[in-house]
């Protein structure tokens, strides 16, 4: 029996085969899914902000793209993952509300997704699939069996990447 483990907002979890990970109702946050196909160690982080650097209240490492990815990799390595084998899939980063005179803070979803891509690139972790942007919420499920990511939306159906 495999278990579906929930990842909350500003949270991260690591599971091993045959378990799976899910996060519900991603909006402007980004779900970062890392997978080691050999050990099948599987990790997911649900980040809210691009960087911990400009923020004083930064104890919760899972809240920020930079610190969450570091921590996720560390915890995956403890369970036997090899960093050089890791691949990534990312989803979320939507802009739920739009305005004609959109200022920077309204584009936080886009900034979150960009930050995640840049950090993964700098670490040499390839992004196998990227399903970000839009103006709608997403529920994601990530499977340790094969690294498959299922994305569910309200009214826009289900897709697999």
């Amino acid at each position: 029996m495999s278990t579906m483990v929930k990842v909350g907002m500003a949270d991260l979890k690591v599971v091993e085969h045959p378990d799976a990970l899910t996060t519900l109702g991603l909006g402007s946050c980004v779900g970062i899914c890392l997978y080691d196909p050999m050990s099948k160690v599987t990790g997911m982080a649900h980040i809210m902000l691009p960087s911990s650097k400009a923020i004083r209240k930064n104890e919760n490492v899972a809240k920020f793209a930079d610190t969450a990815i570091d921590e996720l990799i560390k915890q995956m390595q403890l369970k036997g993952a090899n960093k050089t084998r890791l691949t990534a899939k990312i989803a979320g980063g939507a802009q739920m509300f739009s305005f004609s005179s959109a200022n920077d803070s309204m584009k936080i979803g886009e900034r979150n997704a960009e930050a995640v891509r840049a950090i993964l690139k700098s670490m040499g972790i390839p992004i196998k699939a990227d399903e970000t942007g839009g103006n709608f919420g997403r529920t994601i499920e990530f499977f340790s069996e094969n690294g498959k990511l299922v994305i569910k939306t309200a009214g826009k159906g289900i897709k697999e990447i």
């Binding site: 991603l26 909006g27 402007s28 902000l49 209240k57 809240k63």
Partner: peptide, 19 residues
């Protein structure tokens, strides 16, 4: 849309100063 997605907007704003 989904409550989680809509509420991510104020959560992110407050997230800059608080948990």
């Amino acid at each position: 849309d989904m409550a989680g997605a809509i509420l991510s907007v104020p959560a992110i704003e407050f997230g800059q100063l608080s948990d």
